[in-house]
């Protein structure tokens, strides 16, 4: 490979990687915020993302509703679904059993139910796309070509993440959430309503997933199995340390770029392997991730 070509590959790989990476970052954020506060890795996050995409598709394309109704409606549905799952399913599971594995399996159950429901509608068979709200004309940045849609995805993701950081770090409700994550008992003592706080966190995580779905659906096409993209988000979360919000975001970008560079400079076949190798390598060499502090080990 000559240098000229390698440079083009590098620029394009990074540019495209940042765009898909911004969506992985959003999903990773949704996973990490739940993990930080509930200690549960939500294996249904991908299906929540997928189902939210289909809600939007259904309202917008099949019911022909105006977009200013569709967007908030989708976010509300995602919020309610996740908050109610937390309230009525997980609270009950937590009441019956203490171990992590039970909560994890309950989220796996949710993922099957959502997938089955979407397939029942009959819209999940053919790949579909949520119409892009931004034109897909290309522009050149350096020697990399990106579309306006790409820029919009990247920009929206960054704004949403920034807004979430602000909420999590500088508002009263955000402080309550962080308190719940650090020490639920103490948080309760100082007057935090644990149940409501958890519902709020899960709901918000659903909203972030729904935003990710709205952003990327015009780009990667929707099928009932699109939730498998969550693996890339898990990889991103691991790379970022799994309990660090900024880590999750940087992890998302890293995974997006690594995916492309592996494809360009190693083999297209290895693209799907990249996130798993990233998880393994990070966990073995630096289990706390690139951004995690010291690794907290829970002793029973």
């Amino acid at each position: 490979m000559d240098l000229q070509l390698a440079l083009i590959f590098l620029q394009q790989g990074i540019a495209s990687g940042l765009v898909s990476g911004s969506v992985y970052a959003l999903l990773a954020l949704a996973i990490v915020v739940i993990f930080k506060t509930s200690d549960v890795p939500n294996f249904a996050q991908g299906e929540v993302f997928m189902a939210a995409g289909y809600v939007a598709l259904y309202l917008f394309v099949f019911q022909q509703m105006p977009i200013w109704v569709v967007l908030p409606a989708t976010l509300v549905v995602a919020f309610l679904a996740m908050a109610l799952f937390r309230r009525f399913v997980l609270d009950q599971v937590a009441k019956s059993a203490k171990d992590l594995v039970y909560l994890v399996i309950a989220t796996l159950g949710l993922s099957y139910v959502l997938k089955g429901l979407v397939r029942r509608t009959g819209f999940g068979d053919t790949p579909r796309s949520f119409p892009a709200l931004v034109p897909t004309d290309s522009i050149m940045i350096g020697q990399a070509s990106v579309t306006l849609l790409d820029l919009a995805i990247f920009g929206t993701a960054v704004v949403v993440m920034a807004a979430f950081f602000w909420m999590f770090n500088y508002t009263k409700i955000g402080r309550a959430m962080r308190a719940v994550g650090m020490n639920p008992k103490a948080a309760q003592l100082v007057g935090v309503d644990l149940r409501r706080c958890h519902m709020l966190i899960w709901g918000l995580s659903g909203v972030i997933s729904a935003i990710a779905a709205l952003l990327i659906s015009p780009k990667i096409l929707m099928t009932a199995d699109m939730g498998s993209i969550v693996m890339l988000a898990f990889a991103a979360a691991i790379v970022g340390g799994f309990s660090s919000l900024p880590g999750a975001v940087v992890g998302g970008f890293v995974i997006g770029i690594v995916e492309n560079l592996v494809g360009l400079f190693i083999s297209s076949r290895a693209i799907v392997l990249a996130p798993f190798l990233a998880i393994l390598i990070v966990l073995v060499l630096r289990p706390q991730g690139l951004f995690g502090g010291k690794l907290t080990i829970k002793k029973v």
Binding site: A106, G109, V113, G116, R119
Partner: peptide, 10 residues
């Protein structure tokens, strides 16, 4: 079956 399977798990 997917719905039933998931419901059983939950």
């Amino acid at each position: 079956q997917e719905i039933i399977y998931g419901a059983i798990l939950m």
